[in-house]
Amino acid sequence: MPAIVELNNVVKEYPLGKLVVTALHDVSIAITKGEFTAIAGPSGSGKTTILNMIGCMDVPTTGTVKIDGTLTNNLDDHALTTLRLNRIGFIFQSFNLVNVLDVRQNVEFPLLLQGKLSSKDRKLRVEEMVEKVGLTKQMTQRPNELSGGQRQRVAIARALVTNPAIVLADEPTANLDSTTGHAIIELMRDLNANDHTTFIFSTHDPKVMERATRLIMVADGKVV
């Protein structure tokens, strides 16, 4: 099966005053469609930088990144944003919902940006996703009226509503208690199993790593 994510000899350097900090050293990763992949490692090891490369939020200093067949190195901001909108879903450690929108509107937001579905189809799609994450009763509530676990479920629904090829989750359970964190990982696992959506998430929690079908260990900016 062809790889949906390909990082080839990726080096990422950041200027820090007069110094240059190398966050990634010659990283090469290939992930195939439908994998439930954990990128694990200690803080500062380069997990988030790898997710940023895959998520088209940053481009490598050298090396290449290919997402669902598209080489991202030479894409401009507009093209990268379009790629993120149509191919990638994001789940953040701090949920990052739009506070002034309710559950339905938060989930609907990426669909509105895409502009592909009619109002009726959008409504159906949103209701389907919200039901999948078990928040139908909270549909009209705003993020500040939800628990941490519920907020992360909204974030998952928002990430999946556009049927992306890849869902990236940066430490999705870090701000949740262990029971809620476990439930969130199980939800992601179910969605991966049922819809064959590719999940790539960073974590340093051994219990979360256990649930991954593939584990990529990172240390000091290198895959080990």
């Binding site: 944003t81 993120r84 909108l85 994001f90 990052n96 739009v98 940006l113 928002r158």
Partner: peptide, 16 residues
Amino acid sequence: TREIGTMRAIGIQRGS
């Protein structure tokens, strides 16, 4: 700023 980052990440263009 964080809200802007989130919206940009999920696919909102600069013009929007």
